[in-house]
Amino acid sequence: MSEPKRNILMIGGRDHTFVRIGDMGLRYSALQIRAHLTDHLLDHAETVVVTDYEDIDSSVALAQALHRKTPFDAVFSFAEYGFLTAAHIAEVLNLPSNCQVSTVQLTRNKRLMREALRASGIKDVPFARVRSAAEIADFVAHHGECIIKPAEGGGSEGVYLVDATTDISRALAHAVQVGRDELIAEAFIPGPEYSVETMSVEGAHRILAVTEKTTSGAPYFIESGHVQPAALSADDAARIGERVRVLLDAVGYRTGPAHTEVKLNDGAVHVIETQTRNGGDQIWELTLETTGADVFKETFAAVLGLDYSAPPPAARAMAIRYMLAQDRVLDAITGLDCAARAEGVARVQSSAKPGTRYDAVLSAASRVAYVLARGDSREQALAHAEAAVAQIELR
């Protein structure tokens, strides 16, 4: 007789994760917000509870009720605002998880992360909690231009570059409109920015890939593209990997993927932030294609003690480019089919709705389409993505 399928509880998630749960032969239930309900989730999960899973107390009570009915073997989350809830549920139910309360608290709050890094002996970027325009001005006076942002924000929300000429009241208004309680100021580090994709198992951290990114620039720095592999010397790649391992040790991360953003300046590696999840913006997919590492399946296997072997890489290089809309009403997007047929293109996708008004590029909401492309080199993948983007027109 075959063993019964393992039963897991998911806090949040998207279809690409739920598909992989099925691939692993697992049963699952989910706590999910209404905005992320899909036909796939409703068709394949054993139970779906629509709830605000950021409400920890009510989510724990729901999980306890589900667990009494059909016991779970583990609790997982790859959703940025679901980590802490998953960690508390796992703690209350005494179940294994990729989320631990102390680690999530340190990584969700950028000030606490920096304090943990400093406690490990790494004095990285000057930072301070700020509560007013006067405190921001004082920070700029002591440290020069800086970034202010919500300490617990995500997806570039509320980010603003401040220098001696900035209207600080405007910058402060942009940061607080996100609705997160605490703001942090960090000295601005010039130089190229990268993200580091890792997979940890029982505290051993494996560097999977380093992703090179482009942004919309100051003052908001909305990410507009990514490419793997990054153009790095072996020495720079080694320094980046070592700094990320120190950081993950400092926050006590045990098992699962992490996405850490760093900058290089005069050969020094500076941590921007880390999240104990897969890289967003399809970076997890770039990593899967260029390395074969499926961080979702590896996490399920590591926590549940299952066998899993990664497939070989499918591509030598991958790039993604986003199209940003601003200062317009978008009537239509044309050329998507032509772009999809262009050389090296893996996928073209647009979720834009005609008639939508786009003002300044303040967040990822300004991204109206993307092109995902392969290549035999970083340069070729970028060229394929950019040639395809050139086929698309915003009207």
Rank of each mutant, 00 (worst) to 15 (best):
A385L: 06
L324T: 03
D235G: 09
L286E: 00
L372C: 08
G292T: 08
G292M: 10
Q64K: 00
G252I: 07
T274G: 13
V269M: 02
A204S: 14
L161P: 12
R108L: 14
M24Q: 04
D52Q: 07
G22K: 00
L382C: 12
L66H: 00
V368M: 06
Y220P: 15
R245S: 12
V130S: 05
D294F: 01
V104Q: 02
A74P: 10
K5M: 11
L306T: 01
R347M: 04
E242S: 08
T260P: 09
G191K: 10
Q380R: 11
T215V: 06
M199F: 07
V60T: 13
A373L: 01
T70Y: 07
P311M: 10
A317Q: 01
Q228R: 05
T211D: 00
R254H: 10
V246G: 13
D138N: 14
K263D: 03
A187K: 13
V345P: 04
V345L: 08
S195F: 06
V345H: 06
A171W: 07
E223N: 05
D359L: 14
L247V: 07
S350N: 11
D57N: 10
P229T: 01
W284Q: 05
S169R: 11
I147A: 06
I333T: 02
G305S: 08
Y358F: 00
D39V: 13
T214I: 11
K297D: 10
R316Q: 10
R180Y: 14
D55V: 08
Y28I: 05
S58Q: 04
V125C: 11
F83N: 07
M24R: 05
M113G: 03
A209G: 01
A116P: 02
V246L: 14
S224C: 15
E212F: 03
I8Y: 01
T290Y: 05
G25V: 12
L117W: 04
Y322M: 07
L93V: 06
A339P: 04
L9V: 03
E386Q: 15
Q177F: 13
P229M: 09
Y28M: 01
T299W: 00
E152V: 08
Q177C: 13
